[in-house]
Each structure stands twice: as C-alpha cells, then as structure tokens.
Amino acid sequence: MADKLDAAWAEAWLRNSAAVVAEHRKELIDLDRAIGDADHGENLDRGFSAVVAKLDESTPETPGACFKLAAMTLMSKVGGAAGPLFGTAYLRAATSVGDAAGLDAAQVAEALAAARDGIVARGKAEVGDKTMIDAWTPAVDAAREAAGAGAGPAEVLEAAAAAAQQGAEATDPLVARKGRASYLAERSAGHRDPGAASSALLLRAAADTAGGKDTAGEGGT
C-alpha cells in the first residue's frame, strides 16, 4: 500500500464521494426531514456533482489543489449550512497540506484535524451537540492515534472512517444543542444527525479510495 497519497487519490476520493452521496441522497434527505429542513441530501448531491464537473474541466496536480477546488465549489453551489461547513473543512485541509505532492500518515491525520477545526470555527459546535463534529472529532482522534502508532496513510483513513461511523451512530440518542435540530429540543432524540451521517460517508469514501475499494454500493449510515 502506498506510503503517500497523491493527487490521483484526492481526485478519486472526490469522485467517489459524489457517487456515495448520490447513492445515499434519499437516506440523507430522510434524516434531515426528521430533524431539519430535508435539504441536506439534495444540497450535497448537487454540490459534489458540481465538484465532479469541475474536475472534468481541470486536473489538479496536488491533493491540496483538489481540496481547494472542492472547497470553492461547495461554498458556491451548496445552500444551507452544509456548503460553508464542508467548504471550510476542505479549505482548511488544503491549507494544512500546502503544495505537498503526496501525503504521509501524519499529514493525513493533520489534514483531518484542520478540516475538523475549520468546521468548529464556522459552526461553533462541540462533541455532544448532535452535529457533524460528533463524527469528525472521533475520526481525528483515531487518525492521530493510528499515525502515532506507525500506520500508513490508508490505515489512518480506515481508522478515521470507522470512528466517524461510530460517532455518527452515537448521535442517535442525543438532544441537539446546535443548528435547526436544536429547535426540536427533546424531540430531536432518536434521530441520527444528517451532517454526522454524511461526514461518515465522506470519510469512508476517503478510506476506501486509499485502500483500493469500490465505495459505491457499500453500506454507510
């Protein structure tokens, strides 16, 4: 398995993300209908379709360039909270990795941390608020632990994806303290946060792409 993940991986991750979001579009809409405004799946599907269209027009030469393309596209094409939040995540990841041609395990872990920190800065949420941070923070912790233990970049992403899925599932019983779902108070309990669910899907796509797996068609949330 590769010691570093290059632009080809980053581009493939974004393309696979679009496929996974399209596959789980209705599921994300249904999750958001329960505690939000039912547009999360539609917005993300439109956004990642636009990212793929941009990739078809250009060939980013570094992972950071791929992340920046995704950031700019999502910010301009995705409505609601998802565009600014995911856009900021990709932009912070792009800044973290800079012009590096390939990302080693430590760089991958720190890119994920930068992405998470960008979401926190934009949304002001913390673990337990029933938001995407409940998926991202366990993912970052697992990624850093794996990188520190000598894992390769694909293994770091695998650890992050598994932790993100667990974190997303852990939002089910929580009472929302941030976002539109917080208006429901106790009624938000019993429903998975759609942002945490989509975050887990995107991180699973990253790991499967790095591991050479076909993400589309597999389970997620």
Rank of each mutant, 00 (worst) to 15 (best):
G36T: 02
S76V: 03
A19C: 10
L28R: 12
T62Q: 01
E42Q: 15
L74C: 07
T59C: 06
F48K: 08
A22Q: 09
T73W: 00
D30Y: 03
V51C: 03
T62P: 09
V20W: 11
H40Q: 06
P63W: 04
A53I: 10
P63I: 13
M75Q: 10
T73S: 04
E42C: 09
R25K: 15
N43R: 05
N43H: 12
N43G: 13
G80H: 08
A81W: 06
D45L: 03
E61N: 14
S49W: 00
F48A: 05
D32S: 08
V20Q: 00
F48I: 11
R25N: 11
G64F: 12
G36Y: 05
V20K: 02
G79L: 12
P63K: 02
G47P: 09
A22I: 07
D56S: 06
R33M: 11
E42V: 15
A65S: 10
A71Y: 01
T59I: 06
M75W: 00
G80Y: 11
M72C: 03
G36M: 04
H40L: 12
E61K: 15
L44D: 07
K54F: 00
C66A: 15
K54H: 04
G64I: 09
S58Q: 14
T73C: 08
A71M: 00
R25G: 06
G41T: 14
K68T: 08
A38H: 07
V21I: 15
H40K: 08
S58T: 15
A19S: 14
V78C: 04
